[in-house]
Design a protein around this nucleic acid. Structure first.
Lengths: 338, 338
DNA sequence: TTTAGCACTCAACTTATCCAAGTGCTAAGA
DNA sequence: TCTTAGCACTTGGATAAGTTGAGTGCTAAA
């Protein structure tokens, strides 16, 4: 298929591909004139474009789309790459956040693009403990633990006039009421019943509620990691400074990125150029995939690169990576549950 | 003085300055020919350069040096800027790390350059508490508190066969031995006497020592913050991608940056272009200053920008900022000590 | 010591020219 | 009907040549 050859050539060379060069690359023997005719047809269909009236052809978004949907087959991952993944991921005994952060880095190194990893959904995880640890004179640390081992802390000063016993009582109350509940539920309760009950023990419960709410929100937040930010400088060749800035700003806004990465089904999904809803990314492509960790929810891994990325290799890599990551995390949790 | 006028003109316009334009700007009435003669003299001294044989003049590093050392006087800070500083810095009750991080951001916003803040030296702070907080089945959080209110935590899994009482005993031991000692001393003890003593209580003390060491190191580490990373893209006009990458990499390597920022005396110090020891920064200028927080040590603030930055304004700003920051932190600690 | 005048230099911009790669189209061949 | 050789045409990009303007150094007069 001609389109396939065009995409492959263009993604690997980055130069508009002409009929003559293409003819020599095709498996069967055809003349450049034949290729030209075919190309004219593909252009008619809107699958390829010319950059100017006498230039070679470049795949359009629609062309990439067709290629990705019907033509591409994932490259088998090079055994070398597999080694890199495996060896980077084991070694020291890592905590879950570290595994996930590390994953973003490995994936970005392997691809020279920018990689994202999102931790398995935490909204579904349950509160398994909340306590206050006195640190000094009037300083206290709030510690929240979830049932999949996440720990969130925050220190704060205790205002004059609040006694240790009062706080103790409140913590006991909280634990009695909400241990074992999903974080989302607890967040709701925090708006409704909890304040009333606390009012029995504390004169001004606002401060305490804020702390508890803060820690809870932090724990419930989807945490996502970015690897290979700097690679952006390589593959966004002709972006001006302002564009780059808004791109980088976007990468740091976790809620916006959640939107971008959120619409992911179970299969590996490829969004190309203008297909991406976020305008800032309209010149790039995004490969997203979920990985599921048994009963512990699903996370997302994603890869951002230029529209002219070698899709076959990238899709292969993302596929292999999500498997490996899922496996590691399953192991991790198995270990932890036991 | 002509040099002063040249520097001022060049830093504000970025274009080599010619004799005619300069003559019209000077306070006294002189002809361009006179200015040309003066310029030739300055060039003889190596204070200014031509970019090509018939271009206007540009200050050399030596020229900037002279300007900064003898000619510049700090601009009084615009009342507007002062407002920005003050209003950004108060508001919510912030923790010390947040104040310092925020400072880097404010300073970078104000200047459109890249700002650094280093927390007052922690090596001198003392250990005021270490404890282990059980979180779940076999998960424990190590908490370390210093006498100026810093808290450092780390969670870890307890291996099978180690009992709670044993750990309790060890923690009690640690607290008896090292509470009140400077962190640096504790780090030394960790190499010498502590392991022997712990051996009484734990069969394999290595794991525990590692945890304690980790937390301790984290707490003793100079923490520094960077604000306005992205501004780098604006003012490093003609740097290629590779240079930018190594710059950004440098910004994230806290030990390298410690070197760069470390050699700072009490006065506001300006390092220009090739004067900076780190090669990567040879096309930039760095303004550094310490701020001292009474008995709580000294921190550093710094500003990285192009060699052709408007030094008078920047020096003024850094000066004002360090005062304000010192004041805030004094307040903070006063509050905390009480 | 300052300044007017003048010849000279050079980067940056504009035009002109050429070239290679590529296209569309036509007409002949399988 | 599909393929292909041939050919005129288009176009971006690279190179060369001309133009301009800001700026310089130097000389000689005030």
């Amino acid at each position: 298929m001609i389109l396939k050859a065009i995409v492959r050539d263009y993604t690997s060379n980055g130069v508009p591909v002409g009929s003559k060069a293409l003819a020599s690359q095709l498996p069967m023997h055809v003349s450049s004139a034949t290729v030209r005719n075919e190309m004219a047809a593909l252009e008619e269909l809107g699958l390829i474009n010319k950059t100017h009236s006498s230039s070679g052809r470049v795949p359009s978004v629609k062309g990439y789309r067709y290629y990705v949907d019907y033509l591409v087959q994932p490259d088998p991952v090079k055994s070398n790459d597999i080694d890199v993944i495996k060896s980077s991921l084991d070694g020291q005994f890592l905590k879950i956040d570290e595994i996930i952060e590390l994953s973003a880095n490995i994936l970005s190194n392997l691809t020279s693009y920018t990689a994202f990893t999102v931790k398995p959904e935490l909204k579904e995880s349950r509160l398994s403990g909340f306590r206050l640890v006195p640190l000094g004179k009037r300083q206290v640390m709030a510690v929240l633990v979830t049932d999949n081992g996440d720990v969130e802390t925050q220190t704060f000063g205790v205002p004059q006039g609040v006694e240790g016993e009062q706080l103790e009582a409140v913590v006991r109350l909280i634990n009695d009421q909400v241990i074992g509940q999903p974080l989302a539920t607890v967040l709701e309760l925090l708006q409704t019943s909890i304040p009333l009950q606390i009012a029995h023990y504390l004169q001004s419960p606002d401060g305490f509620l804020k702390i508890f709410g803060d820690v809870l929100t932090k724990a419930a937040q989807e945490r996502f990691f970015v690897g290979g930010r700097l690679n952006l400088l390589n593959y966004s060749d002709n972006a001006d400074v302002e564009e780059l800035k808004s791109l980088y700003t976007l990468l740091d806004r976790s809620d916006d990125m959640a939107d971008v990465l959120g619409q992911t089904g179970d299969a590996i999904q490829v969004q190309i150029g203008s297909e991406i809803t976020n305008k800032i990314l309209r010149d790039y492509s995004l490969i997203t995939a979920t990985y599921s960790v048994g009963g512990h929810g699903k996370g997302v891994i994603a890869l951002l690169g230029p529209t002219r990325m070698p899709y076959s290799r990238m899709i292969g890599l993302v596929g292999a990576f999500r498997q490996e990551l899922a496996k590691r995390l399953m192991d991790y949790y198995r270990n932890f549950d036991e």
